[in-house]
């Protein structure tokens, strides 16, 4: 996997500090996200994986620190630049976060409608293409999100995240709540799509299978920082009790991680 590890950094986080009142989540966190890589983020519950994701996409305002996306610092952007920069990334929220009053296809068209003035038939064509890419069964394109299963909602949400052809994709626990077969299929889909579209992916997960199968690099969050950010083999060799427990526990063996691999 080492062949596409480049030094072209898309997202650069330096000295990030986030806090909710007196409760500090991250302190002095540094992280790089390299172009074309699928970056996994792991960590125990409450270590702030989702908070880090939300800080990078701007849903949470950090207390201090710099977040650069594509070489531009978030804090220096004007409102207009900030709005436009949102076109460059897609986000898949944990529970899909589809708009419940719109059909699936209309959900995919929302970002297109917001940023462009396209004719309806082109938007229909694009929405259907994106849904096909996300492996969504097309006969359900006119259904409402409440009529769908969890796995279908994730696929629909992935299609919406891809609607604007982002270079950067944020996935928050993409396989949570899916059955193992559905999760494996979704992992495969994410991997294939990201490699064929050349996307950079920031993937928050608990799922060891996903880490092993999909991620080029794994960052471990703990003690309010990134403990290590490296390919799987190096992370597994890293000397930290949580990391050892996580990668060498019974569930890790079940996921096919070999001891001292």
């Amino acid at each position: 996997m080492a062949d596409h590890l480049t030094d072209d950094i898309v997202v650069k986080v330096r000295g990030l500090k986030t806090a909710f009142g007196p409760h500090v989540v991250h302190d002095g966190l540094d992280m790089d996200l390299r172009r074309g890589e699928i970056q996994g983020i792991v960590g125990g519950s409450g270590t702030g994986k989702s908070v880090l994701l939300k800080a990078i996409i701007g849903l949470i305002k950090p207390v201090s620190g710099r977040i650069e996306i594509g070489g531009k610092s978030r804090s220096d952007m004007t409102d207009e630049e900030d709005r436009l920069s949102r076109r460059d990334w897609g986000v898949l929220f944990q529970d899909g976060a589809l708009f419940s009053s719109l059909t699936v296809a209309q959900n995919v068209q929302v970002p297109l409608r917001e940023h462009f003035h396209m004719p309806q038939d082109l938007m229909d064509d694009l929405a259907i293409s994106k849904l096909t890419m996300a492996g969504f069964p097309l006969d359900a394109a006119a259904k409402f999100p409440s009529d769908l299963s969890g796995g279908m909602r994730k696929r629909a949400s992935l299609a919406r995240a891809l609607a604007l052809d982002p270079q950067l994709l944020f996935l928050d626990e993409p396989t949570a709540g899916l059955d193992p077969i559905g999760a494996a299929a979704f992992d495969g889909l994410v991997h294939e799509l990201c490699k064929s579209l050349g996307l950079t992916v920031f993937l928050v997960t608990h799922d060891l299978d996903t880490l092993v199968r999909v991620c080029d690099r794994i960052a471990v969050l703990g003690d309010q920082k990134i403990l290590i950010n490296a390919p799987l083999e190096e992370v597994m060799a890293f000397d930290h009790p949580w990391v050892q427990e996580y990668f060498h526990g019974p569930r890790a063996r079940a996921a096919g991680i070999k001891e001292n691999g």
Binding site: T103, Q106, L131, L138, A141, S196
Partner: peptide, 14 residues
């Protein structure tokens, strides 16, 4: 290749 085959026309609205 990803986009090659054209999907069948389906309705996108209820």
């Amino acid at each position: 290749e990803v986009i090659s085959c054209s999907p069948p026309p389906v309705s996108t609205e209820p």
